[in-house]
Design a protein around this nucleic acid. Structure first.
Lengths: 232, 232
DNA sequence: ATACTGTATTTTGAATTCAAAATTCAAAGC
DNA sequence: GCTTTGAATTTTGAATTCAAAATACAGTAT
């Protein structure tokens, strides 16, 4: 309607153009997701459709579609005839979350030991080194980003698409719990050591040890987050 | 010709009755889900919004909302500006699915051994006996239903809400794969024996054995389904 | 003053409308 | 004969409209 920059793919006659202009509701969903994750929309608060529509400058239709997506991700709750509210961070649920995530990580570990190629292990080692460098320089945001990226890459390389999807979905909620607990990046040193153990086990292709290391890492992360939540 | 009476009545167990009239899009989503699961809408087929709107006698708005729900469940794919199509049953993905499900079941087993109360174990034993009775009488549909119910009950009693949700979600896709492979109820006898082993381990509260039994059961189910898929 | 009831306002749910993109199909050009 | 081009049609995306439900509020009765 106005000067908004259209996101469109450059007209390429060349085949592989996987980049599609995403639907409005997807853009809105992404924005909303970020707002919920980072606590800009407070847990438990009611969501006024009208207000959000105005702030996003979209009509209610795409906003409501986006809310349905977020609802399926568990970030908002839809109360019939009563609008939507941001889901509360329930320590009990977070505990459950980690209980499951620990096992998923263990599975990732086993699969990784079987399936990771040499090049991929080197890639991970490089990312790891890079992360340690951020650690050394105390660059928190970059460290956190790389940490997330490494975990995602591990899930990708494990070669199980369903596992990757689940870890991504659960990681959403975990990230939110971290924010809620002001714990985005606690346990630097410990965490770095655990990562080292993971890399070593992977390089030895020791499935048992790798599963144990990843399980251990996730369990300790969970304990820290839960502790942070309790201390609010 | 069909049974459209089963739309509501989620009302069941414990105290606080959250009785609510469900939104139109939820009803539509439930119907669609069933149609996809049972193969009434063929994998890979494009979904015409107009046609479905007419058959459901609703406008496009709730139908589109329902499609978004199904898309998040992985039963349909949304192609921007090109409508929706029913997701194909990919044997590779089904294999991944079971690979994950096996671990979730193992976790269920461990938790069950720790947390199941005597009354709940008795309840499960009763359900098991009832299922065997259906087996004896060769009542396939009832057997299958009870089988599903027992698995769900096991997940519930394991006391981890996240685990329950994930198992429910994955079970959706597994059910679809079974239909696709014409395998809704293969392996009667074998399956019944495996269930017996599960119950026994649970009654002994032997977490290790229970995890092993449930893992084993799910793994064999997966093998059978994959075999069925390959033989299409 | 408090609790209750009926009414007005707001908010949500669903249908309809309008615009933009894709698909179809036929004709023109090579 | 085959491919390409460009309207006409269909289908999807998003805004708007209309209806129903919930909330807020005022007045009344106890």
């Amino acid at each position: 309607m106005d000067d908004s920059a259209d996101v469109k793919a450059p007209e390429a006659h060349d085949g592989a153009a996987p980049l599609r202009r995403l639907a409005l509701f997807e853009v809105v969903a992404e924005q909303l997701r970020e707002m919920v994750l980072e606590g800009e929309l407070l847990p438990g608060s009611r969501i006024s459709e009208k207000r959000l529509c105005e702030s996003f400058e979209v009509s209610r239709t795409p906003l409501r579609e986006a809310l349905k997506v977020l609802a399926n991700e568990g970030l908002v709750e839809l109360l019939p005839n009563r609008g939507a509210k941001v889901t509360e961070v329930d320590p009990r649920e977070v505990a459950d979350l980690f209980e499951v995530m620990v096992e998923l990580e263990a599975l990732s570990g086993q699969l990784l030991a079987q399936r990771a190629g040499d090049a991929q292990i080197e890639e991970l080692r490089a990312l790891h080194r890079q992360m340690l460098e951020h650690y050394r320089r105390q660059e928190r945001v970059e460290y956190f980003r790389l940490n997330q990226r490494i975990h995602r890459r591990l899930a990708e390389i494990s070669g199980n698409g369903v596992l990757l999807e689940l870890e991504t979905a659960l990681n959403l909620k975990i990230t939110r719990a971290r924010y809620a607990a002001n714990m985005q990046l606690g346990r630097w040193d410990e965490s770095a050591r655990e990562h080292e153990a993971i890399l070593e086990a992977l390089e030895r292709r020791d499935g048992e040890a790798l599963a144990r290391a990843m399980r251990d890492h996730m369990r300790k992360t969970g304990d820290a987050v839960l502790e942070g939540l309790a201390a609010r």
